[in-house]
Design a binder for these strands. Structure first.
Length: 195
DNA sequence: CCCCAGATTGTCT
DNA sequence: GACAATCTGGGGA
């Protein structure tokens, strides 16, 4: 399991380093996991697309806690899973957008009501549905036994294999190059030219 | 309360 | 490639 300090890195650095790490989710006796292939950074300043950019509200409150807690919010009737970054009081996070299914694939297929492994974790809302991530995990510490955590399997991802693009879906600060995706991954969201 | 934008997804052409 | 479905949070009345 990754130490809490890992998540307190600068937000764009963390977003890049999370590529290739594994996201785990334990529900009862079932363990679900996937290798992260796509992330986006939401910065503590100068980023109007960041939920914490305007002011503290009940929704974005956990973004202001220390790096390493989960920030889960609902949008368009779906959930999105983020890891709060940096230090307490700043208001920033990394959105986990897509992952390659590793374990618990049959359970995730059932949760998503699909047979395709390419349609399980290939988007932020899909990933949350497949792994049963919802607001009950909001504010949970990923370095404690809360049923959701990140592991490093030791495999290195060379920086040259990470492609940088603008973020997907945001309407403000749309030009910022803050999306990171494993080059040529079949498990990323969006069309192939963005991989 | 009411209104509506939004870090999405699935379906249809 | 276009667009509707879906629903919550936050701002305004």
């Amino acid at each position: 399991m990754l130490p809490a300090a890992f998540n307190q890195l600068e937000t764009t650095a963390l977003a890049k380093l999370l590529i290739g790490k594994s996201l785990f989710r334990k529900i009862g006796k079932t363990t679900l996991s996937g290798r992260i292939v796509e992330t986006e950074a939401y910065l503590p300043s100068g980023d109007s697309a960041c939920h914490a950019a305007a002011k503290r509200t009940p929704r974005n409150e956990v973004m202001f806690s220390f790096g390493g807690v989960a920030y889960v919010y609902a949008i368009h009737a779906k959930h999105c899973f983020n890891i709060v970054s940096e230090s307490e009081g700043l208001g920033c996070a990394v959105l986990i957008r897509a992952a390659e299914p590793i374990s618990g694939i049959e359970e995730m297929k059932a949760n998503r009501e699909t047979d395709s492994i390419y349609n399980l974790l290939s988007g932020p809302g899909k990933l949350c549905q497949a792994m049963k991530i919802d607001r009950s995990l909001n504010g949970k510490d990923l370095s404690k036994p809360n049923g959701v955590w990140i592991e490093d399997d030791g495999s290195k991802v060379d920086a040259s294999r990470i492609k940088v693009t603008n973020r997907i879906g945001v309407t403000s600060a749309a030009e910022l190059p803050l999306r990171f995706v494993l080059a040529n991954s079949e498990f990323a969201s969006g069309p192939k030219y963005m991989r």
